[in-house]
């Protein structure tokens, strides 16, 4: 049952994601791609859970640790680089 509910959420989120992109001016495509890329770094949440649940298993902890590093690079780098791009879009 739980799986069906999750699927339900996924379908709604997918449609929402599609609706959000519509009349975006081309000049914002790069920042938008970069900004949504940062959001895909949400997988860091999964990495945290993986490390948290690793218990005494060394291998799991190491995999989870690498995932945290990768995910954080994605999140921090993604948001900062997007902000840097957007900072330059100002009217004279």
């Amino acid at each position: 049952m739980e799986l069906i509910i999750l699927l339900f959420i996924a379908v709604l989120a997918t449609f929402a994601g599609g609706e959000l992109i519509g009349k975006v001016p081309p000049q914002l495509h790069t920042p938008l791609m970069s900004g949504s890329n940062a959001i895909s770094g949400i997988t860091i949440v999964g990495a945290l859970i993986a490390v948290g649940a690793s218990g005494n298993d060394r291998l799991l902890a190491i995999i989870g640790f690498c995932a945290i590093v990768f995910g954080t690079i994605n999140v921090v780098g993604g948001y900062l680089v997007t902000d840097r791009m957007l900072k330059m879009f100002k009217k004279k």
Partner: peptide, 25 residues
């Protein structure tokens, strides 16, 4: 997908948002 494995709502919602918006873009 990872969200489905972990049954984590945040991962599923954000992942689908990015997946769909990325495809549109």
């Amino acid at each position: 997908m990872t969200g489905f494995v972990l049954q984590n709502h945040a991962l599923i919602v954000s992942g689908c948002l990015v997946g769909a918006s990325g495809l549109f873009l």
